[in-house]
Nucleic acid binder design. Structure first.
Length: 873
RNA sequence: GCGGGCGUGGUGGAACUGGUAGACACAAGGGACUUAAAAUCCCUCGGCCCUAGGCUGUACGGGUUCGAGUCCCGUCGCCCGCACCA
């Protein structure tokens, strides 16, 4: 048996069947043990799994299997993020129905995931496009609507006039639609919004409590929410604005620079701008032009600061004698603050650019440390660092924070037109979440438009609002709009004929609560609060860094919203978060420059010729250039199909390689050599275990008295176990792998020295059992096969994690490195419990120390207990 | 521009709270076994010096310390996030 080569394909299929037949990974909500919820971000069913999935799910599976062995009731589910544009694109290109395309892809990918041997509870599987799932999502939506968490408003959107749809910012490339290439327009549309901004402060504050999240992600979320404290100040108009306003309200975080004010700025979308444009053609033309400029970052960055003087003038709030002109300026955003600003060019770069262009005054009011107030001037760079206020009347000599406070106090106390001139205000960058999409393949928004009653929520008993199957994609735009009858319904309120909402929800909505649905996937309500509260928060969530902001922030908001409507009772959905790195691969290119094309790793052969690697095309033998290592992508053709790898080497090898070498948060480079190394290791373990199984008997009873090699091996077993346990707790898979390699080397060495007494036989059997158990979370099939070969009659997937015998972790001697002047010169082996004095004495008697001292007393002698000795001469 | 991170052999990477730098693996070279290949096993493997042994070495330049890959300051390089947010 043992001499046979390990046949991964046969073995893996066999154990997968056993796990499946015995429902080993089916989880029960009423299990009394402590819970542990492991979740990997669920995949989009694109058609095939890729190496990124293999890495992601291998990591999650290690955690799940490890925690199961540690005695937890583990929830480890899987589902599909199945709504979205690719299905519609496929429908348009290949004449497939989005539903068929999606469910076919799911079936294919489910099959691929199953051969990976993941310890998933497949009984809880669902896809977000399942009617059962989106019914509950509509029910949640209606509850949110009732609780005031949802509203409609007009909002500017990127409109693609060819595809007749709204585009997300990231779908606009250089001002053009990413698919149609048409110039994108800014349009006002009535859209549905979730009130995520109501939770700005809470979402920001609670980040502090997420201590098992990567610091990087926490910081990104903080920046995204973007809290800033400032002052809302009202500037009195000399003559009232055409809107009737007597004062212009602005938001500023720099009230300390108020004496440096040079002009006021209005957003092109500000109501006063709109009103003025009605009688001012030049201004109207300018505003129209601003709207045409794309919202892409590049477009904004390159856009020159421009504006138009409205002729309006305001009074300076702290100095009546100063009048400030009001401009409409292209760089002012309507949806931040009040859509209007006061400009202090000396201390704000944008204001300075504008002032220089229109020749407006630039008066510095913050003096840098040690600068001469008479000589300090502003060139083409605004001064934004710290300093002392000057040129500012009663603020002169104050620090920036003190001046802010002084201005706030003063203006709060003044009243103009019956209201205080200024109020303190906190602003957030975070905007409400627009969820309307003019698409077919998404969750329909369950509301009805009635001519008499307005916007009316669909009645609960009428749910679901189901997507029609008879749909065509012949024309661009939203197929739901064109459907002959789907829109037609009756008003739930008055019973008259009415029309359904044809917008569907952003797919981020689908993924904002799936983790809760897994806790009770068949419930006839969105959640079973008892199940959700019992399982949540997710103890370990694993996924890509690309979701650091949106998906995670939306899910945090959704959890709060679900708490508000009583669907569950907690705020934070993910206790521990881990973001894994990408899978990269070398690239290969045939031919030069524009004539060249990318070729895939499967099309080439790599040889080592005189120490340098050369690649040639398999078909023709043409030389191929080996390019840089990059993220696996279809466009560069540097992908490796997980199924091919698993067919050749088995799932365990693929999993093991993914977990070894690179730290999990970092990118890993997929190499053929690396996979073969992992494969050789699989064979090596199999041979080793076979040899042990043949030449020894299973352990019985307690350990015999030990000494020498047997003791050393037991110490190695328990030390490795302690280290691997700690590594797995901390997701240090690469370190665990390295320790297991070391351990296998140690067992191999012990075995070669002979198995000739009972003590050694016991130690070797223990080592073998521990080895197999430690690798079981990572290579579960090989582990089951070895476990069974070693004579165990239970499944290793159901076995308990072994316990460390602490007494075997300690040695009775310790080896001190001996340094002379900080450089290592030798070692000292001494009893562990030797006192500091004894260590000192022993050190000084060493001949190389004597030699270094040359008869003198040491200048200093540092003994760090159990660590190191340093002699300073 | 703002914010954050990283820089260790030919390569991926180890090194707990400052305490023997390079664990473990990959690649490479040499050898054994074999008709041969594969597989397996053994040896070498940061650089320099003739060896015992020594010197040097964690991007670069300083500093703190008995002792620095780790802490501090500066420089260079790379990566990521955000970006007209007043």
């Amino acid at each position: 048996m043992a001499t046979e080569r390990y046949n991964a394909r046969e073995v893996e299929a066999r154990w997968q069947k056993i796990w499946n037949d015995k429902d080993v990974f089916v989880t029960h909500n009423d299990d009394p043990r402590d819970k542990y919820y492991v979740l990997e971000m669920f995949p989009y069913p694109s058609g095939r799994i890729h190496m990124g999935h293999v890495r992601n799910y291998a990591m999650g599976d290690v955690v799940a299997r490890f925690k199961r062995a540690k005695g937890f009731n583990v929830l480890h589910p899987m589902g599909w993020d199945a709504f979205g544009m690719p299905a519609e694109n496929a429908a348009m290109q290949n004449k497939v129905h989005p539903k068929d395309w999606t469910y076919d892809n799911i079936a294919a990918m489910r099959g691929q995931l199953k051969i990976m041997g993941l310890s998933l509870d497949w009984s809880r599987e669902f896809a977000t496009c399942d009617v059962a799932y989106y019914t509950q999502q509509q029910r949640l939506f209606l509850k949110f609507l009732e609780s005031g968490l949802v509203y409609r408003k007009n909002a500017k959107v990127n409109w693609d006039p060819v595809d007749m749809t709204v585009l997300a910012n990231e779908q606009v490339i250089d001002g053009r639609g990413w698919r149609s290439g048409a110039l994108v327009e800014q349009r006002e549309l009535t859209q549905w919004f979730f009130r995520i901004s109501d939770y700005s402060e809470d979402l920001l504050e609670a980040i502090e409590s997420l201590d098992r999240w990567p610091e990087k992600v926490r910081l990104m979320q903080k920046n995204w929410i973007g809290r800033s404290e400032g002052l809302r100040v009202r500037f009195e108009f000399i003559d009232a604005a055409p809107t009737g306003d007597t004062a212009l309200e602005i938001f500023t975080t720099r009230p300390d620079t108020l004496f440096g004010a040079s002009f006021m700025g209005l957003s092109p979308d500000h109501p006063i701008s709109t009103e003025l444009a009605k009688t001012n053609p030049e201004l109207k033309a300018f505003i129209d032009e601003c709207r045409r400029v794309g919202t892409s970052e590049e477009a904004i960055e390159k856009a020159e600061k421009r504006g138009i003087d409205t002729g309006l003038r305001v009074k300076h709030p702290l100095d009546d004698s100063v009048e400030l002109p009001v401009y409409v300026a292209n760089f002012i955003l309507m949806d931040y603050g009040t859509g209007a600003i006061f400009a202090c060019p000396a201390h704000d770069q944008r204001d300075l650019d504008f002032a220089r262009k229109y020749d407006l005054s630039v008066k510095p009011v913050v003096l840098p440390k040690n600068a001469d107030p008479a000589a300090f001037e502003i060139g083409n760079e605004a001064f934004t660092d710290d300093g002392t206020i000057f040129n500012s009347g009663f603020l002169d000599g104050l620090s920036i924070p003190d001046a802010k406070e002084a201005v706030a106090r003063k203006l709060e106390a003044i009243s103009i037109g019956g209201a205080p001139q200024a109020e303190r205000q906190v602003n957030y960058r975070l905007r409400d979440w627009g969820i309307s999409r003019q698409r077919y393949w998404g969750c329909p928004i369950p509301v009805i438009h009635c001519e008499d009653c307005g916007v009316v929520p669909e009645k609960d008993e009428n749910l679901p609002v189901q997507l029609p199957d008879d749909i065509n994609f012949d024309k661009p735009g939203n197929p739901l709009d064109r459907h002959p009858s789907w829109r037609e319904t009756t008003c739930p309120n008055c019973g008259k004929p009415a029309k359904r909402e044809t917008d569907t929800m952003d797919t981020f909505v689908d993924s904002s609560w799936y983790f809760a649905r897994f806790t009770a996937p068949d419930c006839d309500q969105p959640t079973d609060p008892k199940a959700a509260n019992g399982w949540l928060p997710v103890d370990q969530y694993i996924g890509g860094i690309e979701h650091a902001i949106l998906h995670l922030l939306y899910s945090r908001f959704f959890t709060r919203a679900m708490q508000k409507v009583g669907a569950l009772d907690l705020k934070e959905p993910f206790k521990g978060l881990f973001t894994q790195g990408m899978v990269n691969h070398e690239t290969y290119r045939l031919g030069d420059g524009a004539n060249g094309r990318w070729v895939s790793p499967a099309e080439i052969r790599i040889e080592d010729i005189d120490g340098s690697r050369r690649a040639t095309l398999l078909d023709t033998g043409d030389e191929v250039t080996i390019g840089s290592v990059e993220k696996m992508s279809k466009s560069k053709k540097n992908t490796v199909d997980p199924t091919d790898i698993i067919d050749t080497y088995g799932a365990d090898t693929a999993r093991w390689f993914m977990l070894s070498d690179s730290p999990p948060e970092r990118d890993v480079i997929w190499t053929e050599d690396g996979v073969q190394g992992a494969w050789r290791f699989v064979q090596r373990v199999w041979r080793l275990i076979g040899e042990i199984a043949e030449n020894s008997e299973p352990r019985g009873g307690s350990a015999p008295a030990l000494s020498g090699n047997a003791l050393a091996l037991r110490q190695a077993s328990h030390r490795t176990l302690a280290a691997v346990t700690a590594d797995l707790e901390g997701l240090g898979f690469n370190r665990a792998v390295a320790r297991i390699y070391e351990f296998v080397n140690a067992i191999g060495k012990a075995l070669s020295e002979g198995l000739n007494d009972a003590a050694m036989e016991y130690a070797v059997r223990e080592a073998a059992d521990y080895l197999v158990q430690m690798m079981a979370p990572m290579m579960p099939h090989l582990a089951e096969e070895c476990w069974s070969a070693l004579g165990h009659d239970n499944l290793i997937s159901e076995a308990n994690w072994p316990t460390v015998d602490e007494t075997l972790l300690v040695d009775d001697t310790v080896t001190y490195p001996i340094q002379i002047n900080g450089k290592r010169r030798g070692e000292l082996e001494i009893a562990k419990e030797a006192s500091k004095e004894e260590v000192e004495a022993a050190t000084l008697s060493l001949d190389f120390v004597q030699k270094a001292l040359d008869g003198n007393a040491p200048k200093k002698l540092i003994v760090v207990p159990q660590r190191i000795v340093n002699v300073v001469v």
